[in-house]
Amino acid sequence: MSRPSYGYGSWLIILASITGLAVSYFDYVTPETGIDQSGGVQLVLAAMALMLGAGLVVALLGPGGARSLLRFLILLDIVGTATAGYFLESPLLMGTMMIAAIGWFMSLSARAPEKSP
């Protein structure tokens, strides 16, 4: 039985970042959240956009030093955003980061995608 490729974990990170973008956009524009229009949510929006970009690069690029660096930055992004979610009292955001963390760990244990002959 073969291990899954990098792709599964990376795509989970991409999914989580898209969800995180949606959640934080909702938080930003909805007064009932209590954190609308706030700098903290702006920060999260930026972090989610960066995570999305980094996730896409990791999913689409082959192995190499850049991929390792991006994976490290994604980890920082996940931890930072989860912390922000805690202080913003946004359980949805924290849940989303939990999914991203699962994706990140999956990508750790996965094998590199095979190159085309």
Binding site: G34, I35, S38, G39, G40, V41, L43, A84, F87, L88, E89
Partner: peptide
Amino acid sequence: VQQWGFYM
């Protein structure tokens, strides 16, 4: 306290 949306 709430600053930049963050609850202290």
